[in-house]
Design a protein around this nucleic acid. Structure first.
Length: 241
DNA sequence: AAAGACTGCAACCGCAATTGA
DNA sequence: ATCAATTGCGGTTGCAGTCTT
């Protein structure tokens, strides 16, 4: 088992450059496997799990570290999360250069923001601290409809033998069951949104106004103090598109 | 300028699945 | 077939940097 390894005290916390070097060297020689032998050989006072995690999330070549998710990547994650649920590792295979941790972090950040926005919209006395500012997608992406036909990174898009699970879509009714709506209390999201709509006197003609012309959305959101990307935070197909 | 709030991210933990002796 | 070791995954936490008031 890993952990209490005899007299050797396992190091925890941030990795040092020297440790990274040793790990890189190890992988170069042996490949990304046998993580536990790194510890057993006395190369690093780190658990195999820790070494693997470090490699996968930071040292692996071609990672987009320190690079924000593009609007396209955001859409991909949102869509795939609706299809697969919180299968971050799987979703990450569709995003070259992104790790499951990246996707997971992106999603939880988004969830927190969503919850806070909803909270503030239902409780206007608690104004937003940073109205209009969003670290993710400053410019509102215009959704062109659900994207279909994602191909996992490394697989050919023209592959005939497509994974059956990639073809099967969850019914839209199941979207509300995903954890995107967790923590929003007893009300359904539609109810919550209806309250928000009433509170902010939103007037929409028909169809899906949220993903319409950016100027319309931005005009309304600016005046209401809700960030322009508020609507981007909603599941793409929550209205059955 | 300072304090507090917020964000993004690295890394840990626990559990499940897989491997192999 | 069994069981310990290893690997992989998802959830969570802690912290440094940034932003707002």
């Amino acid at each position: 088992m890993e952990g209490g390894e005899g007299a050797v005290v396992m190091r925890k916390g941030p990795w040092m450059a020297e440790e990274d070097e040793i790990l890189m060297e190890y992988v170069k020689k042996h490949g990304p496997r046998d993580w536990s032998s790194i510890r057993s050989k006395g190369l690093l006072p780190r658990t195999g799990k820790s070494c693997r995690l470090r490699w996968v999330n930071k040292l692996k070549p071609n990672l987009k570290t320190g690079c924000k998710f593009s609007p396209e990547e955001e859409r991909t994650v949102i869509d795939l999360q609706a299809r697969f649920g919180n299968k971050w590792a799987r979703i990450a295979t569709y995003l070259p250069g992104r790790t499951d941790n990246d996707v997971k972090n992106f999603w939880s950040t988004r969830q927190k923001r969503l919850a806070r926005l909803l909270q503030s919209s239902l409780n206007p006395t608690k104004s937003l601290k940073k109205p209009g500012k969003s670290p993710v997608s400053q410019e509102l992406p215009v959704i062109q409809g659900t994207s279909i036909g994602f191909t996992p990174f490394g697989e050919e898009s023209s592959k005939n033998g497509q994974n059956s699970e990639d073809i099967l879509f969850e019914p839209s009714s199941s979207i509300g069951g995903s954890d995107i709506m967790d923590g929003f209390g007893e009300l359904s999201f539609q109810d919550e949104f209806a309250q928000y709509e009433a509170a902010h006197c939103l007037q929409y003609s028909e169809g899906l106004p949220f993903f319409g012309p950016q100027d319309i959305v931005k005009k309304e959101t600016r005046s209401s103090g809700i960030p322009s990307n508020f609507f981007d935070d909603l599941p793409i197909d929550m209205f059955g598109l």
